[in-house]
């Protein structure tokens, strides 16, 4: 696995397949040695992005997941043929979740083609373990 590699998965745009997309993204991130928090974030983000695009996907079309391996990061693109006329609102619940999970989240819509792009950086910096547990241990 090296920067520049791209993994693509094409699935029917139906919720039954979301788990497969999650597993693919998580499996890749785990093998790229992302820490577990980031892997879980990725997993959740794929679910969210899929549930965002599936309801408006044109019946019978495929959902495409593309994972582009970068240098210490991955970029996911979830693409669908859509009947939606607007991109998700910035303050919608799903978008709030996605932008909290990903380091970058963007969405484009052109000619019935919707793309959600999510970037995840594999930073594994120590952080303050907030709250009672942190104070007890110090």
């Amino acid at each position: 696995m090296k920067p520049g590699d791209v993994v693509r998965l094409s699935l029917p745009a139906a919720t039954a397949y979301v788990g497969v997309a999650r597993s693919l993204a998580a499996g890749l991130a785990t093998r790229l040695d992302f820490d577990l928090d980031h892997v879980e974030d990725l997993r959740l983000a794929v679910s969210e992005a899929c549930s965002l695009v599936i309801p408006t996907a044109v019946p019978g079309t495929d959902l495409n997941l593309e994972v582009r391996i970068g240098d210490g990061e991955v970029t996911l693109a979830i693409t669908s043929d859509t009947s939606a006329t607007t991109t998700p609102a910035d303050d919608s619940f799903a978008w709030t979740v996605l932008s909290a999970l990903a380091d970058d989240a963007s969405s484009t819509l052109a000619q019935g083609h919707q793309v959600i792009r999510l970037r995840f950086v594999s930073s594994a910096e120590p952080m303050a373990l907030d709250g009672p547990a942190g104070t007890e241990r110090s």
Binding site: T96, A100, A128, L129, D130, G131
Partner: peptide
């Protein structure tokens, strides 16, 4: 997680369950 943007590990430490 989504509004205070705490990481799962931070939440785990705060709530007292595993990540």
């Amino acid at each position: 997680r989504f509004f205070d943007e705490m990481s799962q590990s931070q939440i785990a430490a705060r709530v007292g369950i595993s990540q």
